[in-house]
Amino acid sequence: MFSIRSVSKTYPNATIALQNISADIAHGEFVALLGPSGCGKSTLLRLLAGLEAPSKGAIEWDNAQRPGPGDIGFVFQDATLLPWADAADNVYLPLRLRGERRANAAGRIQAALAQVELTEFAHARPKALSGGMKMRVSIARALVSDPQLLLMDEPFAALDEFTRHRLQDDLHALWLRSGKTIVFVTHSIYEAAYLASRILIMSPRPGCIAADIRAAIPEGGNRRTSPEYANLVAQITETFRRIMPA
């Protein structure tokens, strides 16, 4: 889908957030960017979204097609909903910004809300929704323009364990059935191992990719209790121990 080619990012205050990062991401991969706080995960995601420009290097898109508005869905750590708009209007926002009429968009808004199982809450305002439900609305908002690429920045980090498991299950199922490319930032080894088909481990100061692990946990059954999952968690933990001595 795209290649990150020797990308470095230095912020104006001279913080080197990323140094010489390279990776090829294929269509349909579920990539977890895994690393401790401050290693440049968010920065890399913002570069992919085009919200920041790399200081060096480039991101090359397949067929030289830079994604435009609506080609990328972005989900932040906080749900960041408009507090004055109900769930449906929040989901409508990306379409509205591109000049689509509400009447034309109604079907897609409903479909996006249905994907996150919030059909009955279309007219609820954020204040009336739980943290998990707000995050679902946020995901529906990212899905409504049917983007090929979904960028998620620690979206479940602020949720309680039970809600997090539920949303992880749903996201994994969504990825399986939609075939979207997902880049998912997390600092949880378990989350990365459970969700992703590929795990890029980042190390800090300056941020770079320290390991690239393919995951192969069989679908079906309880993946959380499968030996492959346990092995993967062990493998990642071991890798971290190697690359980050005390």
């Binding site: 979204a49 508005p69 609506g70 960041t80 926002l93 990306p94 910004l97």
Partner: peptide
């Protein structure tokens, strides 16, 4: 104005007026 929402607007090609 929440910076994440500003990012979201920019990502979707919002104009200054929007």
């Amino acid at each position: 104005t929440p910076p994440e929402l500003l990012d979201l607007f920019r990502l979707n090609g919002a104009t200054r007026w929007q």
